Each structure stands twice: as C-alpha cells, then as structure tokens.
Simulated scan of single mutants.
Amino acid sequence: MKFLSFIVMVYLPVIVFAQQDVLNKDSNNMNSGVSAVKMRGLNPPKIQSFIVPGVLIGYGLVSLGDNGIRRLDFNIQRELQRKHPDFSVRIDDYLQFAPVGAFYALNLAGVKSKHSVVDGTALFVLSRAFVFITVSSGKSGIGRERPDFADRKSFPSGHAANTFAAAEFLNQEYRDVSPWIGYAGYTVATITGVLRMYNNKHWLSDVVAGAGVGIASTKLAYLIYPNLKKLIMGKQVIKYSLVPMYQQKAAGLSFNGTF
C-alpha cells in the first residue's frame, strides 16, 4: 500500500500543522477583539471537510484488493463495453480545464471571486501541484492496468483529479456568490469522470479515487496558502491591475503589477 502511505505522509502532517496554526491565530485574534477572517483575508477549510475526499480515496484504495468493489469495476466496464463498444470522444481532455476557465471568465465579466485573480491563480497552481505529486505517485507506485490495456497507469484517474480539483477551486471562490456556480463545476467534473469510463480508460474506482485526490488537493491548498504567502511575501504589498484588452483582432488580458 505505497500509495496509502504516501497519502498519509504528505497530507496528514500538513493538514494538522496548518490547522493548528489557524486555530492559534483565531485564538489570538479573538483575544484582541479582531476578526480572524478579516486578519487573514481567507477562510481555510476545517479538518472535517477532508472527510468526504478521504472516503473517496479510501474507496479507491479498497478496490486494489480482491473484493466486491473491485468486482463492481469489472461489471461496470463490461456493461459499458457491451452497450457502447465503439464509443470514443476526446472532450474529456478539454473538460478538465472548464472550471478554472470559468473562474477567469467570471472575473473578466465583473463577477468577483473570493480572492483576487493573482491569489486565486496561486491557489490553483498550488492545488495542481498537490494533484500532480499524488497522481504521479499513485500511477507509478501501484501500476494498475487500464481497462483497454494501454498501460499500467490507471490508478488514480488524473483527468478526474484535475477536474475535481478545479471544481472545488471554483466552489471555494464563488460559493458566497452563488452555490450553483460550484454545482456547475462539479457537474462538469462528474461528466469528465464518466467519460473516462465510457472511453475505456479508467475503472470506476480510479475515477472515485481521483475525485477524492482532486478535492483534497484544493482544500489543502486553501489550508496552507495563508502561511505560505506570508512566508514568501512577508508584509510586502502587491499592487496590480488585470484588465481585458483587444488589439489587432486578438483578445487577452493586460497585467500590470508593483511588487
């Protein structure tokens, strides 16, 4: 169970450390009569919010044995191939970028996210770093064969991990504006996971575990980002502007910053 050991070693110490730091800051700020949320400008997730992604990852890990969950993988794959033997689409390769694309599109349209575009981008990049490390470790350490026998990099699903990480990121940024924005992101993520099975690239448990990795990665990014930003930037203030532009029949963004 190398993958399980990796999950415990990477995620658990960071979660405990970051959460303890948040609790200490909360206590200090309460004693001084200052809102901790206002002081940080962030509202990190609680440890309890890792229960759902933990269950999803656990489901995938259990499937690595010879049991009912693994047999369910085989049954679903057989049914999908029997009913849709020629199914093949590539849209799942692009859907994984849709939720984060929505983040920038909404900001561009004037619908402000919880954090600035710069902070939001940093949070997303940090989340993707956790996804990459975890998924790469799982694929190389476990070596599960794909349903189509293409290679032994089936577990966990990278597409599912990427899309669910982006969906949770979109949810974190816009849940105070409208929960439906987050629901839309998770709908896209679910469709991506289903398409991976229809395309015969992943087992159900691969997708479920990937979803758990993606959600946990984003929550972990939000948990440690305040401390990481303070460590890197200190009290330095960043002033920037990010505005849409259209020049020579090409649309884009113009970024100007003072560090």
Rank of each mutant, 00 (worst) to 15 (best):
S241M: 10
G193R: 01
L204F: 12
Y198H: 08
T218M: 15
P244M: 06
A209L: 02
N227Y: 15
L228W: 07
G193I: 06
L242D: 07
G214T: 08
Y222R: 07
I238M: 10
Y246E: 12
V207Q: 01
Y225Q: 08
A221G: 15
N227W: 14
G210W: 00
Y198A: 09
Y246R: 06
L242W: 06
A216Y: 00
G210Q: 02
A189C: 09
L231H: 07
V207I: 06
T218F: 14
P226A: 09
I238Q: 10
K219W: 08
M233K: 11
Y222C: 11
N200H: 13
S217V: 02
I215S: 10
I232S: 08
Y225F: 11
T218V: 08
I238V: 07
G185N: 05
V237Q: 14
T190R: 00
L204H: 02
L204A: 12
Q248T: 13
T187K: 03
N200T: 11
K230V: 07
L195N: 03
Y222M: 14
T192G: 07
K249S: 11
L228H: 01
Y246N: 09
L242R: 05
G210V: 01
H202I: 02
G185S: 06
Q248A: 12
W203T: 00
V213S: 07
V188P: 03
K249Y: 10
G234N: 11
K219Y: 12
T192F: 02
Y186L: 09
M197G: 03
V194E: 07
V237R: 13
P244E: 07
Y225K: 05
Y225A: 11
I232D: 08
K239E: 12
G212D: 03
G210K: 01
Y198F: 15
K249N: 12
A221I: 13
K235D: 13
G234L: 15
K219C: 01
G185R: 03
